[in-house]
Design a protein around this nucleic acid. Structure first.
Lengths: 245, 245
DNA sequence: CGCCTGCTTGATGACAATCAAGTTTAGTGG
DNA sequence: CCACTAAACTTGATTGTCATCAAGCAGGCG
Protein backbone atom coordinates (compact mmCIF):
# COMPACT_ATOMS: atom_id res chain seq x y z
CA UNK A 1 0.00 0.00 0.00
CA UNK A 2 1.62 3.28 -1.11
CA UNK A 3 2.02 5.90 1.56
CA UNK A 4 0.63 9.28 0.63
CA UNK A 5 1.16 12.24 2.89
CA UNK A 6 -2.07 13.46 4.44
CA UNK A 7 -3.35 16.81 3.30
CA UNK A 8 -3.03 19.62 5.78
CA UNK A 9 -6.31 21.44 5.94
CA UNK A 10 -7.60 24.70 7.23
CA UNK A 11 -7.83 24.47 10.99
CA UNK A 12 -10.29 27.33 11.24
CA UNK A 13 -13.27 25.23 10.26
CA UNK A 14 -12.82 23.04 13.32
CA UNK A 15 -14.08 24.39 16.59
CA UNK A 16 -12.83 21.50 18.69
CA UNK A 17 -9.40 20.30 19.67
CA UNK A 18 -7.89 18.15 22.36
CA UNK A 19 -7.63 21.08 24.68
CA UNK A 20 -10.99 22.70 24.13
CA UNK A 21 -12.61 19.31 24.14
CA UNK A 22 -11.24 18.51 27.55
CA UNK A 23 -11.01 21.95 29.04
CA UNK A 24 -14.15 23.60 27.76
CA UNK A 25 -12.29 26.82 27.13
CA UNK A 26 -10.63 28.18 24.08
CA UNK A 27 -7.25 29.68 24.83
CA UNK A 28 -4.24 28.26 26.54
CA UNK A 29 -0.63 29.23 26.17
CA UNK A 30 0.82 27.46 23.15
CA UNK A 31 -2.61 26.48 21.95
CA UNK A 32 -2.33 27.50 18.33
CA UNK A 33 1.15 26.07 17.96
CA UNK A 34 0.01 22.67 19.11
CA UNK A 35 -3.07 22.58 16.99
CA UNK A 36 -2.58 20.91 13.64
CA UNK A 37 -5.46 19.16 11.96
CA UNK A 38 -4.84 16.71 9.13
CA UNK A 39 -7.26 14.89 6.92
CA UNK A 40 -6.73 11.20 6.19
CA UNK A 41 -8.27 8.90 3.60
CA UNK A 42 -9.47 5.33 4.12
CA UNK A 43 -6.58 2.87 4.58
CA UNK A 44 -4.13 5.70 5.02
CA UNK A 45 -1.60 5.08 7.76
CA UNK A 46 -1.27 7.73 10.43
CA UNK A 47 1.67 6.23 12.30
CA UNK A 48 3.68 3.03 11.99
CA UNK A 49 4.39 0.49 14.68
CA UNK A 50 7.96 0.88 16.00
CA UNK A 51 8.35 4.42 14.70
CA UNK A 52 9.48 6.94 17.32
CA UNK A 53 6.57 8.69 19.00
CA UNK A 54 6.19 12.22 17.69
CA UNK A 55 2.54 13.10 18.23
CA UNK A 56 -0.59 12.11 19.99
CA UNK A 57 -3.71 12.02 17.90
CA UNK A 58 -7.16 13.23 18.75
CA UNK A 59 -9.89 11.98 16.46
CA UNK A 60 -12.17 14.81 15.32
CA UNK A 61 -14.29 13.00 12.74
CA UNK A 62 -14.23 9.54 11.18
CA UNK A 63 -13.08 6.20 12.48
CA UNK A 64 -9.55 4.97 13.07
CA UNK A 65 -8.03 1.64 14.12
CA UNK A 66 -4.82 0.55 15.82
CA UNK A 67 -3.27 -2.86 15.16
CA UNK A 68 -0.23 -5.02 15.63
CA UNK A 69 1.03 -7.51 13.09
CA UNK A 70 3.16 -10.62 13.19
CA UNK A 71 5.78 -11.26 10.53
CA UNK A 72 3.59 -13.84 8.79
CA UNK A 73 0.73 -11.40 8.32
CA UNK A 74 -1.48 -12.31 11.25
CA UNK A 75 -3.03 -9.14 12.58
CA UNK A 76 -4.71 -8.10 15.80
CA UNK A 77 -6.72 -4.91 15.82
CA UNK A 78 -6.32 -3.52 19.33
CA UNK A 79 -8.87 -0.74 19.13
CA UNK A 80 -11.27 1.38 17.13
CA UNK A 81 -11.45 5.11 17.80
CA UNK A 82 -13.97 7.82 17.01
CA UNK A 83 -14.67 11.45 17.79
CA UNK A 84 -13.08 12.56 21.02
CA UNK A 85 -10.79 9.58 21.45
CA UNK A 86 -7.10 10.22 22.02
CA UNK A 87 -4.47 7.78 20.78
CA UNK A 88 -0.96 8.05 22.13
CA UNK A 89 0.85 9.45 25.13
CA UNK A 90 3.55 12.13 25.38
CA UNK A 91 6.39 9.80 26.32
CA UNK A 92 9.74 8.93 24.78
CA UNK A 93 9.54 5.64 23.00
CA UNK A 94 8.04 4.00 19.95
CA UNK A 95 4.50 3.32 18.87
CA UNK A 96 3.63 -0.27 19.71
CA UNK A 97 0.80 -0.26 17.16
CA UNK A 98 0.10 1.00 13.67
CA UNK A 99 -2.60 3.67 13.45
CA UNK A 100 -4.72 3.59 10.28
CA UNK A 101 -7.76 5.47 9.06
CA UNK A 102 -10.84 3.38 8.26
CA UNK A 103 -13.01 6.17 6.87
CA UNK A 104 -12.23 9.70 5.84
CA UNK A 105 -10.97 11.19 9.09
CA UNK A 106 -9.83 14.53 10.39
CA UNK A 107 -7.35 14.19 13.16
CA UNK A 108 -5.79 16.73 15.43
CA UNK A 109 -2.09 15.96 15.76
CA UNK A 110 -0.56 17.25 18.97
CA UNK A 111 3.22 17.25 19.07
CA UNK A 112 4.66 15.35 21.99
CA UNK A 113 7.01 18.20 22.85
CA UNK A 114 4.24 20.76 23.04
CA UNK A 115 2.11 18.40 25.09
CA UNK A 116 4.91 17.98 27.58
CA UNK A 117 5.37 21.73 27.81
CA UNK A 118 1.66 22.21 28.29
CA UNK A 119 1.61 19.64 31.06
CA UNK A 120 4.17 21.63 33.01
CA UNK A 121 1.94 24.68 33.08
CA UNK A 122 -1.47 23.07 33.56
CA UNK A 123 -2.14 20.31 36.11
CA UNK A 124 -5.73 19.89 34.95
CA UNK A 125 -4.54 19.23 31.43
CA UNK A 126 -2.11 16.65 32.75
CA UNK A 127 -4.92 14.86 34.53
CA UNK A 128 -6.84 14.72 31.27
CA UNK A 129 -3.88 13.08 29.57
CA UNK A 130 -3.69 10.50 32.35
CA UNK A 131 -7.43 10.01 32.15
CA UNK A 132 -7.13 9.21 28.45
CA UNK A 133 -4.41 6.67 29.24
CA UNK A 134 -6.73 5.15 31.82
CA UNK A 135 -9.53 4.91 29.26
CA UNK A 136 -7.28 3.14 26.76
CA UNK A 137 -6.10 0.76 29.48
CA UNK A 138 -9.66 -0.06 30.54
CA UNK A 139 -10.58 -0.81 26.93
CA UNK A 140 -7.52 -3.04 26.57
CA UNK A 141 -8.36 -5.05 29.69
CA UNK A 142 -11.96 -5.45 28.57
CA UNK A 143 -10.66 -6.73 25.25
CA UNK A 144 -8.27 -9.14 26.95
CA UNK A 145 -11.04 -10.96 28.79
CA UNK A 146 -13.02 -10.95 25.57
CA UNK A 147 -10.22 -12.54 23.54
CA UNK A 148 -9.09 -14.92 26.26
CA UNK A 149 -12.30 -16.12 27.83
CA UNK A 150 -15.42 -15.18 25.90
CA UNK A 151 -17.14 -17.32 23.28
CA UNK A 152 -17.37 -16.01 19.70
CA UNK A 153 -21.04 -15.10 20.22
CA UNK A 154 -20.20 -13.11 23.34
CA UNK A 155 -17.39 -11.27 21.60
CA UNK A 156 -19.60 -10.23 18.70
CA UNK A 157 -22.35 -9.14 21.09
CA UNK A 158 -19.85 -7.01 22.99
CA UNK A 159 -18.52 -5.60 19.75
CA UNK A 160 -21.99 -4.60 18.55
CA UNK A 161 -22.70 -2.81 21.81
CA UNK A 162 -19.43 -0.96 21.46
CA UNK A 163 -20.43 0.09 17.95
CA UNK A 164 -23.65 1.44 19.32
CA UNK A 165 -21.73 3.46 21.87
CA UNK A 166 -19.63 4.98 19.09
CA UNK A 167 -22.71 5.71 17.06
CA UNK A 168 -24.34 7.56 19.93
CA UNK A 169 -21.18 9.63 20.27
CA UNK A 170 -20.88 10.47 16.60
CA UNK A 171 -24.59 10.96 15.95
CA UNK A 172 -25.97 11.92 19.36
CA UNK A 173 -29.39 10.69 20.43
CA UNK A 174 -32.04 8.85 18.36
CA UNK A 175 -31.32 6.83 15.27
CA UNK A 176 -31.16 3.13 15.98
CA UNK A 177 -29.38 2.39 12.75
CA UNK A 178 -25.77 1.58 13.45
CA UNK A 179 -23.19 1.90 10.71
CA UNK A 180 -20.20 -0.39 10.72
CA UNK A 181 -17.39 1.57 9.11
CA UNK A 182 -15.05 -1.41 9.27
CA UNK A 183 -14.97 -4.55 7.11
CA UNK A 184 -15.80 -8.07 8.25
CA UNK A 185 -12.10 -8.78 8.12
CA UNK A 186 -11.48 -5.88 10.53
CA UNK A 187 -14.15 -7.18 12.88
CA UNK A 188 -12.56 -10.62 12.71
CA UNK A 189 -9.10 -9.22 13.45
CA UNK A 190 -10.54 -7.31 16.39
CA UNK A 191 -12.48 -10.19 17.92
CA UNK A 192 -9.84 -12.85 17.30
CA UNK A 193 -12.04 -14.77 14.86
CA UNK A 194 -12.15 -15.36 11.08
CA UNK A 195 -14.37 -13.34 8.82
CA UNK A 196 -16.44 -16.43 7.98
CA UNK A 197 -17.16 -16.94 11.66
CA UNK A 198 -18.11 -13.29 12.07
CA UNK A 199 -20.52 -13.64 9.13
CA UNK A 200 -22.09 -16.76 10.55
CA UNK A 201 -22.67 -15.13 13.93
CA UNK A 202 -24.16 -12.04 12.29
CA UNK A 203 -26.49 -14.37 10.38
CA UNK A 204 -27.37 -16.28 13.52
CA UNK A 205 -28.17 -13.09 15.42
CA UNK A 206 -30.27 -11.99 12.46
CA UNK A 207 -32.20 -15.29 12.33
CA UNK A 208 -32.87 -15.11 16.07
CA UNK A 209 -34.18 -11.55 15.70
CA UNK A 210 -31.49 -10.08 17.91
CA UNK A 211 -30.41 -7.72 15.14
CA UNK A 212 -31.67 -6.56 11.76
CA UNK A 213 -29.18 -6.34 8.92
CA UNK A 214 -30.23 -3.53 6.59
CA UNK A 215 -27.04 -3.79 4.58
CA UNK A 216 -23.77 -5.50 5.32
CA UNK A 217 -22.62 -2.27 6.98
CA UNK A 218 -25.86 -1.12 8.55
CA UNK A 219 -27.81 -2.82 11.30
CA UNK A 220 -30.28 -2.32 14.10
CA UNK A 221 -29.98 -3.79 17.57
CA UNK A 222 -33.44 -5.12 18.35
CA UNK A 223 -32.86 -6.43 21.85
CA UNK A 224 -30.28 -4.54 23.89
CA UNK A 225 -31.14 -6.35 27.05
CA UNK A 226 -30.50 -9.74 25.53
CA UNK A 227 -27.36 -8.48 23.79
CA UNK A 228 -25.99 -7.04 27.03
CA UNK A 229 -26.70 -10.29 28.83
CA UNK A 230 -24.99 -12.25 26.08
CA UNK A 231 -21.97 -9.94 25.99
CA UNK A 232 -21.20 -10.48 29.68
CA UNK A 233 -19.82 -6.98 29.91
CA UNK A 234 -18.09 -6.28 33.17
CA UNK A 235 -18.02 -2.55 32.65
CA UNK A 236 -21.18 -0.59 33.26
CA UNK A 237 -22.53 0.50 29.88
CA UNK A 238 -26.00 1.39 31.07
CA UNK A 239 -25.51 5.12 30.75
CA UNK A 240 -24.82 4.83 27.03
CA UNK A 241 -27.78 2.65 26.16
CA UNK A 242 -30.58 4.58 24.53
CA UNK A 243 -34.07 3.93 25.82
CA UNK A 244 -36.54 1.72 24.02
CA UNK A 245 -39.58 3.19 22.27
CA UNK B 1 -11.83 -16.56 50.42
CA UNK B 2 -11.86 -14.54 53.68
CA UNK B 3 -10.43 -11.07 53.47
CA UNK B 4 -7.78 -10.33 56.05
CA UNK B 5 -6.39 -6.85 56.39
CA UNK B 6 -2.73 -6.67 55.36
CA UNK B 7 -0.24 -5.99 58.11
CA UNK B 8 1.29 -2.57 58.11
CA UNK B 9 5.01 -2.92 58.50
CA UNK B 10 7.91 -0.71 59.38
CA UNK B 11 8.70 1.47 56.41
CA UNK B 12 12.22 2.20 57.59
CA UNK B 13 13.60 -1.11 56.41
CA UNK B 14 12.74 -0.25 52.83
CA UNK B 15 15.12 2.02 51.01
CA UNK B 16 13.08 2.20 47.82
CA UNK B 17 9.73 3.70 46.98
CA UNK B 18 7.92 4.81 43.88
CA UNK B 19 9.57 8.19 44.08
CA UNK B 20 13.11 7.19 44.88
CA UNK B 21 12.84 4.37 42.40
CA UNK B 22 11.96 6.72 39.59
CA UNK B 23 13.66 9.87 40.72
CA UNK B 24 16.89 8.57 42.15
CA UNK B 25 16.69 11.05 44.98
CA UNK B 26 15.35 10.75 48.46
CA UNK B 27 13.29 13.72 49.49
CA UNK B 28 10.32 15.36 47.88
CA UNK B 29 7.62 17.42 49.50
CA UNK B 30 4.97 15.12 50.92
CA UNK B 31 7.22 12.13 50.53
CA UNK B 32 6.82 10.56 53.93
CA UNK B 33 3.09 11.09 53.99
CA UNK B 34 2.66 9.23 50.73
CA UNK B 35 4.88 6.36 51.67
CA UNK B 36 3.02 3.45 53.16
CA UNK B 37 4.31 -0.06 52.75
CA UNK B 38 2.06 -3.04 53.41
CA UNK B 39 2.80 -6.71 53.39
CA UNK B 40 0.44 -9.14 51.68
CA UNK B 41 0.16 -12.91 51.85
CA UNK B 42 -0.45 -15.30 48.94
CA UNK B 43 -4.01 -15.10 47.59
CA UNK B 44 -4.67 -11.93 49.55
CA UNK B 45 -6.60 -9.35 47.61
CA UNK B 46 -5.08 -5.89 47.38
CA UNK B 47 -7.97 -4.18 45.60
CA UNK B 48 -11.28 -5.33 44.17
CA UNK B 49 -12.62 -4.78 40.67
CA UNK B 50 -15.22 -1.99 40.65
CA UNK B 51 -14.09 -0.52 43.95
CA UNK B 52 -13.32 3.21 43.84
CA UNK B 53 -9.69 3.92 43.13
CA UNK B 54 -7.90 5.02 46.30
CA UNK B 55 -4.25 4.15 45.74
CA UNK B 56 -1.72 3.17 43.19
CA UNK B 57 0.51 0.29 44.09
CA UNK B 58 4.20 -0.09 43.57
CA UNK B 59 5.48 -3.63 43.95
CA UNK B 60 8.59 -3.76 46.15
CA UNK B 61 9.03 -7.54 46.51
CA UNK B 62 7.03 -10.57 45.47
CA UNK B 63 4.66 -11.19 42.59
CA UNK B 64 1.18 -9.85 42.06
CA UNK B 65 -1.53 -10.44 39.45
CA UNK B 66 -4.47 -8.48 38.10
CA UNK B 67 -7.56 -10.17 36.72
CA UNK B 68 -11.12 -9.69 35.57
CA UNK B 69 -13.89 -12.20 36.11
CA UNK B 70 -17.19 -12.99 34.44
CA UNK B 71 -20.26 -13.80 36.54
CA UNK B 72 -19.98 -17.52 35.73
CA UNK B 73 -16.44 -17.74 37.09
CA UNK B 74 -14.42 -17.46 33.92
CA UNK B 75 -11.31 -15.47 34.66
CA UNK B 76 -8.75 -13.60 32.60
CA UNK B 77 -5.48 -12.65 34.23
CA UNK B 78 -4.48 -9.39 32.59
CA UNK B 79 -1.01 -9.06 34.04
CA UNK B 80 1.69 -10.23 36.41
CA UNK B 81 3.76 -7.66 38.26
CA UNK B 82 7.07 -7.75 40.10
CA UNK B 83 9.58 -5.42 41.70
CA UNK B 84 9.39 -1.91 40.32
CA UNK B 85 6.06 -2.32 38.53
CA UNK B 86 3.33 0.20 39.21
CA UNK B 87 -0.34 -0.79 39.09
CA UNK B 88 -2.95 1.91 38.93
CA UNK B 89 -3.23 5.56 37.95
CA UNK B 90 -4.19 8.62 40.00
CA UNK B 91 -7.58 9.19 38.36
CA UNK B 92 -11.16 9.31 39.59
CA UNK B 93 -12.92 6.09 38.78
CA UNK B 94 -13.03 2.45 39.70
CA UNK B 95 -10.53 -0.36 39.39
CA UNK B 96 -11.33 -2.39 36.31
CA UNK B 97 -9.43 -5.39 37.66
CA UNK B 98 -8.88 -7.18 40.93
CA UNK B 99 -5.33 -7.04 42.29
CA UNK B 100 -4.17 -10.12 44.17
CA UNK B 101 -0.88 -11.23 45.71
CA UNK B 102 0.56 -14.49 44.37
CA UNK B 103 3.51 -14.74 46.76
CA UNK B 104 4.35 -12.91 49.94
CA UNK B 105 4.62 -9.35 48.72
CA UNK B 106 5.50 -5.97 50.10
CA UNK B 107 3.76 -3.19 48.30
CA UNK B 108 4.09 0.55 48.53
CA UNK B 109 0.61 2.06 48.52
CA UNK B 110 0.54 5.62 47.24
CA UNK B 111 -2.66 7.50 47.90
CA UNK B 112 -4.27 8.92 44.79
CA UNK B 113 -4.74 12.31 46.44
CA UNK B 114 -1.10 12.64 47.40
CA UNK B 115 -0.03 11.50 43.95
CA UNK B 116 -2.13 14.20 42.36
CA UNK B 117 -0.69 16.81 44.69
CA UNK B 118 2.82 15.62 43.93
CA UNK B 119 2.16 15.82 40.21
CA UNK B 120 1.31 19.50 40.52
CA UNK B 121 4.71 20.28 41.99
CA UNK B 122 6.93 17.98 39.95
CA UNK B 123 6.68 17.65 36.16
CA UNK B 124 9.32 14.91 36.06
CA UNK B 125 7.30 12.85 38.48
CA UNK B 126 4.24 13.31 36.32
CA UNK B 127 6.12 12.04 33.30
CA UNK B 128 7.07 8.93 35.25
CA UNK B 129 3.41 8.29 36.03
CA UNK B 130 2.56 8.62 32.37
CA UNK B 131 5.48 6.39 31.49
CA UNK B 132 4.12 3.70 33.79
CA UNK B 133 0.72 3.98 32.09
CA UNK B 134 2.46 3.61 28.76
CA UNK B 135 4.25 0.48 29.97
CA UNK B 136 0.98 -1.10 31.13
CA UNK B 137 -0.63 -0.21 27.82
CA UNK B 138 2.21 -1.74 25.82
CA UNK B 139 1.93 -4.95 27.85
CA UNK B 140 -1.83 -5.03 27.28
CA UNK B 141 -1.47 -4.66 23.51
CA UNK B 142 1.19 -7.35 23.38
CA UNK B 143 -1.18 -9.61 25.30
CA UNK B 144 -4.06 -8.82 22.96
CA UNK B 145 -2.21 -10.06 19.88
CA UNK B 146 -1.14 -13.06 21.89
CA UNK B 147 -4.70 -13.95 22.93
CA UNK B 148 -6.27 -13.10 19.61
CA UNK B 149 -3.83 -14.35 17.04
CA UNK B 150 -1.08 -16.54 18.49
CA UNK B 151 -1.14 -20.32 18.75
CA UNK B 152 -1.01 -21.92 22.20
CA UNK B 153 2.66 -22.83 21.66
CA UNK B 154 3.51 -19.23 20.79
CA UNK B 155 1.67 -17.89 23.81
CA UNK B 156 3.51 -20.19 26.20
CA UNK B 157 6.84 -19.34 24.59
CA UNK B 158 6.10 -15.64 25.02
CA UNK B 159 5.00 -16.24 28.60
CA UNK B 160 8.22 -18.08 29.46
CA UNK B 161 10.34 -15.27 28.05
CA UNK B 162 8.36 -12.80 30.13
CA UNK B 163 9.06 -14.91 33.21
CA UNK B 164 12.73 -14.78 32.45
CA UNK B 165 12.54 -11.00 32.21
CA UNK B 166 10.93 -10.84 35.63
CA UNK B 167 13.53 -13.20 37.03
CA UNK B 168 16.38 -11.03 35.78
CA UNK B 169 14.73 -8.05 37.44
CA UNK B 170 14.18 -9.74 40.78
CA UNK B 171 17.45 -11.65 40.86
CA UNK B 172 19.75 -9.59 38.67
CA UNK B 173 22.31 -11.28 36.44
CA UNK B 174 23.26 -14.97 36.22
CA UNK B 175 21.07 -17.83 37.36
CA UNK B 176 19.29 -19.55 34.53
CA UNK B 177 16.79 -21.18 36.82
CA UNK B 178 13.46 -19.48 36.49
CA UNK B 179 10.87 -19.78 39.23
CA UNK B 180 7.22 -19.71 38.34
CA UNK B 181 5.45 -18.19 41.33
CA UNK B 182 2.03 -18.76 39.75
CA UNK B 183 0.05 -21.97 39.35
CA UNK B 184 -0.74 -23.76 36.08
CA UNK B 185 -4.26 -22.47 36.44
CA UNK B 186 -2.92 -18.91 36.62
CA UNK B 187 -0.82 -19.47 33.52
CA UNK B 188 -3.87 -20.86 31.76
CA UNK B 189 -6.01 -17.89 32.78
CA UNK B 190 -3.28 -15.56 31.54
CA UNK B 191 -2.72 -17.24 28.17
CA UNK B 192 -6.37 -17.95 27.46
CA UNK B 193 -5.89 -21.73 27.60
CA UNK B 194 -6.83 -24.53 30.00
CA UNK B 195 -4.40 -25.86 32.55
CA UNK B 196 -4.29 -29.23 30.79
CA UNK B 197 -3.20 -27.54 27.60
CA UNK B 198 -0.54 -25.55 29.45
CA UNK B 199 0.77 -28.80 30.94
CA UNK B 200 0.88 -30.51 27.57
CA UNK B 201 2.83 -27.66 26.00
CA UNK B 202 5.26 -27.60 28.90
CA UNK B 203 5.75 -31.32 28.38
CA UNK B 204 6.19 -30.89 24.65
CA UNK B 205 8.79 -28.15 25.14
CA UNK B 206 10.54 -30.41 27.64
CA UNK B 207 10.57 -33.38 25.25
CA UNK B 208 11.97 -31.21 22.46
CA UNK B 209 14.74 -29.96 24.75
CA UNK B 210 13.58 -26.36 24.60
CA UNK B 211 13.25 -26.20 28.37
CA UNK B 212 14.23 -28.29 31.38
CA UNK B 213 11.66 -28.76 34.12
CA UNK B 214 13.47 -29.07 37.44
CA UNK B 215 10.25 -28.98 39.40
CA UNK B 216 6.79 -27.95 38.38
CA UNK B 217 7.65 -24.41 39.43
CA UNK B 218 11.29 -24.27 38.38
CA UNK B 219 12.65 -24.47 34.88
CA UNK B 220 15.55 -23.58 32.63
CA UNK B 221 15.26 -22.08 29.17
CA UNK B 222 17.72 -24.05 27.05
CA UNK B 223 17.26 -22.30 23.74
CA UNK B 224 16.37 -18.62 23.95
CA UNK B 225 16.85 -18.09 20.25
CA UNK B 226 14.37 -20.79 19.35
CA UNK B 227 11.97 -19.63 22.04
CA UNK B 228 12.11 -16.04 20.81
CA UNK B 229 11.50 -17.18 17.26
CA UNK B 230 8.57 -19.28 18.38
CA UNK B 231 7.08 -16.50 20.52
CA UNK B 232 6.87 -14.09 17.57
CA UNK B 233 7.44 -11.17 19.91
CA UNK B 234 6.95 -7.84 18.26
CA UNK B 235 8.59 -5.89 21.02
CA UNK B 236 12.37 -5.88 21.23
CA UNK B 237 13.35 -8.04 24.17
CA UNK B 238 16.98 -8.44 23.23
CA UNK B 239 18.29 -6.16 25.97
CA UNK B 240 16.83 -8.35 28.68
CA UNK B 241 18.16 -11.65 27.40
CA UNK B 242 21.16 -12.86 29.38
CA UNK B 243 24.10 -14.09 27.37
CA UNK B 244 24.85 -17.78 26.88
CA UNK B 245 27.85 -19.44 28.59
C1' DC C 1 1.48 -42.80 56.56
C1' DG C 2 -2.49 -41.01 54.32
C1' DC C 3 -4.89 -37.25 52.68
C1' DC C 4 -5.33 -33.35 49.83
C1' DT C 5 -4.12 -30.28 46.36
C1' DG C 6 -1.88 -29.32 42.21
C1' DC C 7 0.07 -31.26 38.23
C1' DT C 8 0.28 -34.50 34.32
C1' DT C 9 -1.33 -37.69 30.82
C1' DG C 10 -4.96 -40.06 28.13
C1' DA C 11 -9.38 -40.53 25.30
C1' DT C 12 -13.07 -38.28 23.19
C1' DG C 13 -15.90 -34.73 21.16
C1' DA C 14 -17.39 -29.93 20.03
C1' DC C 15 -16.59 -26.11 17.59
C1' DA C 16 -14.18 -22.75 15.01
C1' DA C 17 -10.71 -22.79 11.16
C1' DT C 18 -10.09 -24.00 6.72
C1' DC C 19 -11.19 -24.79 2.01
C1' DA C 20 -14.44 -23.97 -1.47
C1' DA C 21 -18.37 -22.35 -3.85
C1' DG C 22 -21.88 -18.92 -4.41
C1' DT C 23 -23.99 -14.22 -3.82
C1' DT C 24 -24.26 -9.44 -3.29
C1' DT C 25 -22.46 -4.92 -3.77
C1' DA C 26 -19.86 -1.16 -5.60
C1' DG C 27 -17.41 0.73 -9.20
C1' DT C 28 -16.40 1.44 -14.29
C1' DG C 29 -17.20 2.19 -18.89
C1' DG C 30 -19.82 1.62 -23.05
C1' DC D 1 -29.16 2.64 -18.14
C1' DC D 2 -27.21 -1.60 -18.23
C1' DA D 3 -23.27 -4.90 -18.84
C1' DC D 4 -19.12 -6.26 -16.84
C1' DT D 5 -15.63 -6.82 -13.24
C1' DA D 6 -13.65 -7.14 -8.86
C1' DA D 7 -14.02 -7.09 -4.13
C1' DA D 8 -16.53 -8.01 -0.11
C1' DC D 9 -19.63 -10.78 1.98
C1' DT D 10 -22.25 -15.11 2.85
C1' DT D 11 -23.07 -20.01 3.08
C1' DG D 12 -21.69 -24.90 2.86
C1' DA D 13 -18.64 -29.14 3.82
C1' DT D 14 -14.83 -30.96 6.08
C1' DT D 15 -10.92 -31.13 9.23
C1' DG D 16 -7.87 -30.17 13.05
C1' DT D 17 -7.27 -28.57 17.49
C1' DC D 18 -8.12 -27.50 21.96
C1' DA D 19 -11.65 -28.17 25.61
C1' DT D 20 -13.66 -31.49 28.17
C1' DC D 21 -14.01 -35.53 30.91
C1' DA D 22 -11.49 -38.84 33.38
C1' DA D 23 -7.85 -41.15 35.59
C1' DG D 24 -3.31 -41.34 37.53
C1' DC D 25 0.79 -39.19 39.77
C1' DA D 26 3.70 -36.35 42.82
C1' DG D 27 4.71 -33.37 46.43
C1' DG D 28 3.51 -31.12 50.93
C1' DC D 29 1.71 -31.35 55.52
C1' DG D 30 -0.58 -32.80 59.60
Amino acid sequence: MPYTAPAEINTEQYSQSFITHFENRKNIAGYSKVRNILRYHPDQIIAFENDPITHLYEIMTGTVKTYKMLNDGRRQITGFYTKGDVVGLPVDGRYFYTIEAITEASICCHSKIQMKRLMDSDPDFTLKIIKSAHDRLRDAHEQMISLGRKTPDERIAAFLLKCQKWATIQIPAQNFIISLPMSRMDIADYTGLRQETVCRIFSKFKRSGLITLLRSDQLILNDHRQLLKLANLSEDNSETIPRYH
